[in-house]
Write a protein that binds this DNA or RNA. Sequence first.
DNA 1: GAGAATGTACACTACACAGTGTAGTTCTTA
DNA 2: TAAGAACTACACTGTGTAGTGTACATTCTC
Lengths: 201, 201
Amino acid sequence: MNTPLKLTDRKRQAIVEAAIAEFRVSGFESTSMDKIAATAGVSKRTVYNHFPSKDELFAQILHELWNSSMAQQQQPYDPAAPLREQLLALLWKKMAMLQDSYFLDLARVAIAESIHSPERAQEMVSRLTRKEEEAVVWLRAAQADGKLLKADPVLAPQMLTGQLKTFAFWPQVTLNQPPLDAAMQKKVVEATVDMFLAYAG
Amino acid sequence: MNTPLKLTDRKRQAIVEAAIAEFRVSGFESTSMDKIAATAGVSKRTVYNHFPSKDELFAQILHELWNSSMAQQQQPYDPAAPLREQLLALLWKKMAMLQDSYFLDLARVAIAESIHSPERAQEMVSRLTRKEEEAVVWLRAAQADGKLLKADPVLAPQMLTGQLKTFAFWPQVTLNQPPLDAAMQKKVVEATVDMFLAYAG
DNA sequence: GAGAATGTACACTACACAGTGTAGTTCTTA
DNA sequence: TAAGAACTACACTGTGTAGTGTACATTCTC
């Protein structure tokens, strides 16, 4: 037997996969339950046997995408390592996350929804935003260590990550532009680090 | 007579105003022609006598908002004036535009639409983006004058305006956050200038 | 004040879509 | 292999909404 799962589990999985595909491409409004059922190769009734409503299904899918793109842990501040290298590592990690296609799709769908139906996905968007906070922790530690003292502690973390997003997130989310190529990623990360170190000390 | 316009002109104007109000609040999908007609105090038939379709009306409204928020002219580079002051002036002008409520509403509606119906408002979004180019021209002139030579000429203009948008545009558009207060605007503009000058020479 | 242009009320078509009810079929498992 | 769980086809309700057609009313213009 090539599918170890029970029929009902396979069906459920097919529905989830189809829903992800459709929502990623078309967003919430323009995706119909009939379409999802057809793509999943499942009757519409089965979709409703697994998920009570379209909203519920959408919520589950956002949750799914969220989990699949969030495997990040805090980068610790190291007083012994050069600042430049630590900053580069921090921003490369961030850059990798921003350019991950699941993350981008999640962000696109969540943002589109949160723009004209705040309650549905607003929480997701603010969770996306809260993930910026790695830079906050790192910078706080650096400043406690007497480094980078010229940086405004409130603005600086967002200045760092915002710089990446200017090139590697907003154009992709709002204009559907392709991800940055490797050379461009390198330029952006290094320019951001250079600028920040020049500014912050 | 307190209304010098003909009936038909008044009706048309009422429709446009109602449509702007509704689209600003609810976006394209969630705004119905019946609602627009009711808000305008006009029969639906009259709406259709003035505008052939909802898409057409939406396009006209985007055009309207565009014109009402675009009264910008190029800031010339002045070799005699201090760089810092010129940069501050440039960014203050940009900041004012970004925080204009009509501009924000336009951007919000256009971006929401362009995310899941590219053809409709994509052109509008790219026009919004092209307006960044004032900084390009100014920087080119400064570099031709031998200043700010350490800045990457491709990235630098977007680094400047992107920094403002990190604080004064994206949170407002995507999270419906309130505009920045005056003190915060000042902090952002000055930090951006400081950082850029530290980096670019 | 007559005729043309414009607006109004309202009924109507056409469609897309969320969600349900049911009778019958297929799969799983004890 | 029998019973129950899950799936399927399909018809159906209800709703929202774009857009049209028409008969009648109002407003403008000469």
